[in-house]
């Protein structure tokens, strides 16, 4: 059976790379997006099992991205992990409204991300 696919959206290429390495190591396939707009353009109906997205990104921020994502029927119920900062309380409430329940505080270590992911999906 095909591996489950996780989309990682962050404007930092290095962050995407590290997360990607960790996720692939754990048995997932990874799709990358450098911001909300880029990510949306890459989501053309293929199966995505989980989205990991930063909040603060150029072009399209994480909240708008999730709102757009949830409008698409094929991603309506896709779980989202949002990356946030300690000071991001107001962001969090906006994200909650968009249906985001899983938050991981930046900075995090790769194994913390894997642990968060495995509470939502398994490879």
């Amino acid at each position: 059976m095909a591996n489950k696919v996780i989309m990682v959206v962050d404007d930092s290429a290095s962050l995407r790379q590290v997360v990607s390495i960790a996720l692939k190591g754990a048995g997932y396939d990874v799709l990358e997006g450098c911001d909300g707009k880029d990510a949306l353009s890459k989501l053309t109906g293929q199966k995505i099992n989980l989205v990991i997205s930063d909040v603060n990104m150029p072009n399209m921020d994480g909240i708008s991205f999730v709102q757009e994502l949830k409008k698409k029927p094929e991603y309506k119920f896709t779980p989202v992990i949002m990356l946030t900062t300690e000071s991001g309380d107001d962001m969090k409430s906006k994200g909650q409204a968009a249906g985001v329940k899983a938050w991981v505080v930046k900075p995090f270590k790769p194994d913390q991300m894997i642990s968060a992911v495995s509470k939502l999906i398994q490879p």
Binding site: D11, L15, V18, N56, P107, K109
Partner: peptide, 19 residues
């Protein structure tokens, strides 16, 4: 200002990932 913030924010996040 947002772009300046984001630059600092992004560096912090990635640096954390590398320890």
């Amino acid at each position: 200002i947002n772009a300046i913030f984001r630059a600092a924010h992004t560096i912090k996040g990635s640096a954390g990932l590398f320890g």
